[in-house]
């Protein structure tokens, strides 16, 4: 019985800790909370670029690239969700959130375009890759800005 009580106690502490992160108190915490979904989004864009280039070079088949891009659409959805549900404490945080949301939305657009191209719809490879690169650059520079705040 004692073990159960200790476990319940631990669970309560863990839950409380989880809530504390949800309502970030300091600017550093805010920056950190936004960095995670941005890194997730860069990872998705990086994967999408690789999958697209492989198909363009004839090293991948359409089904694999299509699946890889679809998986990245889901990853970006998760990232966008994390940014959109973030509650900023002040004006700086709100501005960061707006920038992050734009960057992630642009990434979603770029990956969706890439998937359209992989399935033979419009655009050309160069344009698709350029859009992905631009999105990656935007995500990276925003992450760099936030990193300066967190000191990471």
């Amino acid at each position: 019985m004692r073990v159960v009580r200790v476990l319940l106690g631990l669970a309560a502490v863990a839950a409380a800790a989880g809530c504390a992160v949800g309502s970030a108190a300091t600017t550093v915490d805010e920056a950190r909370a936004l960095t995670a979904p941005l890194e997730q989004a860069s990872s998705a864009v990086g994967t999408a670029t690789l999958a697209t280039e492989l198909l363009g070079d004839g090293r991948s088949i359409a089904a694999v690239t299509d699946t890889a891009l679809l998986d990245q659409v889901h990853v970006l959805e998760e990232a966008a969700d994390a940014v959109a549900t973030f509650v900023p404490a002040d004006g700086t945080g709100a501005a960061w959130q707006a920038d992050a949301l734009t960057a992630v939305r642009d990434a979603q657009l770029a990956v969706a375009d890439a998937r359209g191209w992989a399935n033979g719809a419009g655009a050309d490879e160069a344009a698709v890759v350029a859009a992905l690169d631009a999105s990656a650059t935007a995500l990276d520079s925003l992450t760099a800005t936030l990193d300066e705040v967190t000191g990471g």
Binding site: S43, G46, T47, L50, S60, I61
Partner: peptide, 26 residues
């Protein structure tokens, strides 16, 4: 090096495609 985190099976096969092309992928 690219800062990509693996979260799906489709990513796991991409390095093989990069190295060996369609045949290796199949």
């Amino acid at each position: 090096p690219a800062g990509i985190e693996v979260s799906s099976l489709s990513q796991i096969v991409l390095p093989v495609a990069l190295a060996g092309g369609k045949l290796a992928l199949a």
